[in-house]
Design a binder for these strands. Structure first.
Length: 948
DNA sequence: GGGGGAAGGACCA
DNA sequence: TTCCTGGTCCTTCCCCC
């Protein structure tokens, strides 16, 4: 078949942009004339330039292929031929011709619906879509070369009288639902491919149908207002197994010459078509399909075409054979299939697009018969997957089993727009997309681990950037936390030039296993964010099973952020949906917002999980700083301690440095001294105060008498690190004081490193984990020597029980003896936050001195790890297992129940009172704010930290 | 060398 | 002036084990 792909490169235009007339109603057009108009309209545009680039890439691919072909020896070819023949024999032997598969496709669906609802359009060339893009066109328009996937403005040049009707998907969905009701009568498990198309396996229906009395195959003809019948269906007798081709009347909606009332067979309908009022259909496959199409037409006034064949691939091709308003049956025998395949152009086969067509064309393959002849060559030039597919096609093989309820692999949303360069707009859109996607995910109760950002710049170059997390995410904030970092990376990559976008999309994939698809548990974080954008959204912190997953390394320089933050945004961002959260306070026109301790702790947990799966190369566990990946130079992330740069596109009021966007990720980062480490500073840039001689620290709320943003940022870093009040720095000269804390951290790190080293050497004993000791020491707490081999985790945050205890490295032995009697704080937690309590009694919450621990998890009275039975510390029921994994799962479940219970209790928290108390804390140190924040959780126990 | 993630692209409706 | 959207699958490259 002569196609635009194989012959037009020398004709002065791009073959990939040439008219694709591989569509019903487009036969016999003046392709040259149409192509000239298309090229004239497109040439010089960015789109055209990009298409040219793509065309060159395909040409290069073909060149490489041809080069490869020239090196193939006779021996190789002969060997491949043997392989192909063997495989052909095997495939033929198991060929399944027993099923009757039907592919039904509505004729020019959207256009037909619009024409039905507006009969004036019937005689006019029309298309559905916009000046930017058409989704479909009617058959009048196709005569001008106007087709789906063509920009409206080009279509207008081809056909100046073209009427373009905007899409109305709600309407199409309604009609689609009506059609699907009919499909279900023939195959309750039919497979819808889109609103207007479906595959059905009618084998079972046909078996039943053979025994049906005539009355069950009789359908009444709907009449219009004038009493004339509207059907255009044709009835035919069964004709054995020969090829049957039946072209019928055209759609009454689409075509003027619809032979509706004059249809002769209605009077002479075989099998008892009674007086033109009713139609009786036969029992064979064709009759069943005809009946289906008849009913569709009677119900919707729209026509459908259908293909009947022994497999899906052939059925699809057959449905196109007699379009519109026709059907074609390919008999179920090998000979008929092979005859049918012989002259079939490869492009007609679903799965072979313009690129594959062009590549095959370069090898002289245009029809399926060539495909079979050159299979040995194809086996040497294409991947196994590809040539196996080609072999199937050449033999007329396809799927005979309609895959029902196929599992969704990904979900995404994307938007195309005019050029967008302003950062605020980009981040705002990014958040909007995340929000839309989160809603969609919620509808299907899905959560995924891979978040992908798709960007198309004004030159039509598409980039995708993905990040895979250790646990599944689904909420707006979680998605945005990742997406915004990916976006920021791309912005940085082109900086100082703006990122000029025309499309942005967000996708989630790597959905968690079916077991985890149960309705998502509401987390406390989500709960506390009532009033936020998706307060009802479930949170996806939960990961019952310990995640055993390889944490990918950043893909080279293009991935400056190995683990995008998962720090939640707080509420109150309506004015600036993209405004980042950082350090517990958010700044912007929306004012100051508190970020909960749990949000930060959660980010730490995620980091901890990541580290547990993939320890840093140097073998050290980061306790005090946010590690952003291996420190190897090849993958070392960018330093993003960005100085404030006034963006000319944004007002001073709304401008934020990009560094602020990631500040929240690094809440616990305490060391600003170690500049050689790959980390992101918690620098904050607060341009609302640019131009004044002092800046107010959003952590301690004090004025810092400096206009040097570097100095100011360092101050904020220090505050965020949780330094005691007396060490806070409020002038330029005082800044250096903070370094003493860094030394302390270095000491702790050293000890951790030593401990890890010793552990690796096998000299460590249970309960002597240096990290635990270090943490405890730093807290002034004592480690119970019987605590078992918990990995340095001291616990007190109770609300995160939807993180598996396993995931944070705590086993039931630890649970039993852990001074907190319950839940872990990941080891990444900043000890400085905990220090202030200076508690020596491990049974007392360090955050709430003098108060009982908030965690009410009952302790196990006695336990011996050697005993086969373990008693659940939550429900107190002895479990009939000695398998710790199973036991842990049970404890997880119990704890989750507890959390749900707690959530109910939380609902009664008096937030107003709390907020008032919080306001009173202004001016106090950040640690106080954190403690106060915790009162959100604890006050329902009657032990609010704020009361102290 | 195999497995798996990331990125890009082909293809479809 | 103006060229979509949402999804799946495949290929290639690269890193890690």
């Amino acid at each position: 078949m002569e196609t635009g792909g194989t012959s037009s490169s020398g004709e002065g235009f791009l073959s990939r942009m040439a008219l694709n007339d591989n569509k019903a109603g487009m036969e016999g057009l003046d392709r040259d004339k149409i192509n000239k108009i298309i090229m004239k309209s497109s040439k010089g545009s960015r789109f055209y330039e990009n298409e040219m680039k793509k065309e060159q890439q395909v040409n290069q691919r073909i060149e490489r292929m041809m080069l490869q072909k020239s090196h193939i020896t006779e021996q190789q070819l002969s060997k491949a031929q043997t392989q192909v023949e063997k495989m052909t024999f095997d495939l033929d032997r198991v060929r399944d011709l027993s099923r009757v598969i039907v592919h039904v496709d509505m004729d020019a669906f959207y256009a037909a619906v619009e024409t039905r609802d507006c009969p004036d359009l019937k005689d006019k060339p029309m298309a559905v879509g916009s000046m930017s893009m058409l989704t479909t066109s009617n058959y009048h328009a196709r005569k001008f070369g106007v087709r789906a996937a063509m920009p409206g403005f080009i279509a207008k040049k081809l056909c100046p009288n073209l009427v373009i009707v905007p899409t109305n998907f709600d309407k199409y969905r309604e009609v689609s639902a009506e059609i699907r009701e009919i499909f279900a009568d023939y195959d309750p498990h039919f497979l819808p491919m889109s609103l207007d198309e479906a595959y059905l396996d009618i084998s079972e229906h046909l078996e039943q149908r053979r025994g049906w009395p005539e009355v069950l195959r009789t359908h009444r003809l709907r009449t219009n207002d004038t009493g004339t019948a509207t059907s255009v269906s044709v009835l035919v007798e069964e004709q054995g197994d020969g090829l049957q081709e039946t072209v019928e009347g055209l759609s009454p909606v689409l075509f003027e010459d619809s032979p509706s009332s004059s249809c002769p067979f209605l009077q002479d309908a075989p099998g008892g078509g009674a007086g033109g009022d009713v139609v009786v259909f036969g029992t064979c496959a064709e009759e069943a399909v005809r009946e289906m199409r008849f009913r569709i037409e009677q119900k919707t006034s729209l026509t459908a075409s259908a293909g009947i064949a022994p497999n899906m691939m052939l059925a699809k091709v057959c449905s196109d054979k007699n379009k519109p308003n026709g059907q074609y049956r390919l008999p179920s025998n090998r000979q008929a299939v092979m005859v049918f395949i012989q002259d079939l152009p490869v492009r007609k086969v679903s799965g072979i697009g313009k690129v594959t067509e062009k590549m095959l064309g370069a090898l002289g393959i245009t029809s399926c018969v060539h495909l079979g002849q050159e299979m040995a060559l194809l086996a040497l030039l294409f991947s196994e997957t590809s040539w196996h597919h080609f072999l199937d096609i050449s033999l007329g093989l396809g799927s005979t089993h309609i895959e029902r309820d196929g599992e969704r692999k990904s979900m995404s949303t994307e938007r195309t727009f005019g050029e967008m360069s302003a950062l605020e707009e980009q981040f705002s859109l990014c958040r909007q997309l995340c929000q839309d996607l989160a809603q969609d995910l919620q509808k299907e109760a899905l959560k995924g681990k891979t978040v992908t950002l798709k960007l198309k710049n004004v030159n039509f170059e598409v980039k995708t950037r993905a990040w895979t997390l250790p646990c599944a995410v689904a909420t707006t904030d979680e998605l945005f936390a990742v997406a915004k970092d990916l976006l920021k990376t791309e912005i940085d990559n082109v900086s100082p030039q703006p990122l000029r976008l025309r499309l942005m999309g967000v996708r989630v994939s790597s959905f968690v296993s079916v077991d985890d698809k149960k309705p998502l548990q509401k987390s406390i974080v989500g709960f506390l964010q009532q009033g936020g954008a998706d307060s009802s959204s479930p949170s996806q912190i939960s990961s019952h099973k310990p995640v055993k997953e390889h944490q990918p390394k950043p893909p080279g320089q293009t991935q400056p952020f190995p683990c995008p933050s998962l720090v939640q945004q707080s509420q109150g961002q309506e004015d600036h949906p993209w405004v980042p959260s950082w350090g517990g306070v958010e700044v912007g026109r929306t004012g100051e917002q508190q970020q909960s301790f749990f949000q930060r702790a959660r980010a730490q947990r995620l980091r901890l999980q990541a580290e547990r799966e993939d320890p840093p190369e140097d073998g050290k566990w980061n306790v005090l700083e946010t590690r952003l990946g291996p420190a190897s130079s090849a993958t070392k992330p960018k330093q993003t301690q960005t100085p404030v740069q006034k963006n000319p596109n944004t007002s001073a009021e709304t401008h934020f440095s990009m560094s602020a966007l990631t500040a929240s990720d690094n809440m616990t980062h305490a060391s600003t001294a170690n500049s050689t480490e790959a980390h992101v500073s918690t620098s904050l840039c607060w341009s609302t105060e640019l131009g004044t001689d002092s800046l107010t620290c959003p952590v301690c709320f004090r004025e810092v008498h400096t206009t040097d943003l570097t100095v100011f940022n360092r101050h904020v870093d220090q505050c965020l690190s949780g330094l005691p009040m007396e060490h806070n720095i409020h002038t330029d000269t005082e800044l250096e004081i903070g370094s003493s804390v860094c030394e302390e951290e270095v000491e702790i790190e050293k000890e951790i490193a030593e401990g890890e080293r010793r552990r690796e050497e096998g000299v460590m004993k249970k309960g002597r984990d240096p990290l635990s000791r270090c943490m405890l020491d730093s807290l002034g707490l004592r480690l119970d020597s019987s605590a078992g081999d918990h990995k340095g985790l001291l616990l007190y945050e109770t609300s995160t029980t939807n993180i598996s205890l396993n995931a944070v490295g705590l086993n039931p032995v630890c649970l039993n003896t852990c001074p907190n009697g319950g839940v872990a704080i990941p080891r990444g937690t900043d000890p400085n936050i905990l220090k202030g309590s200076s508690q020596s009694d491990p049974r007392v919450c360090p955050l709430s001195p003098g108060r009982p621990r908030p965690m009410t998890t009952p302790k196990v009275e006695s336990h011996d790890a050697r005993e086969p039975a373990l008693t659940c510390p939550v429900c107190q029921v002895t479990q009939d297992t000695d398998n710790l994994t199973l036991f842990n799962q049970h404890v997880d479940l119990c704890l989750n129940q507890e959390v749900l219970h707690e959530l109910e209790g939380l609902a009664s928290v008096d937030r107003t009172t709390h907020d008032e108390k919080l306001a009173a804390h202004k001016g106090q140190c950040f640690r106080d704010v954190l403690f106060n924040d915790l009162s959100h959780i604890t006050c329902h126990y009657g032990a609010s930290c704020a009361d102290r």
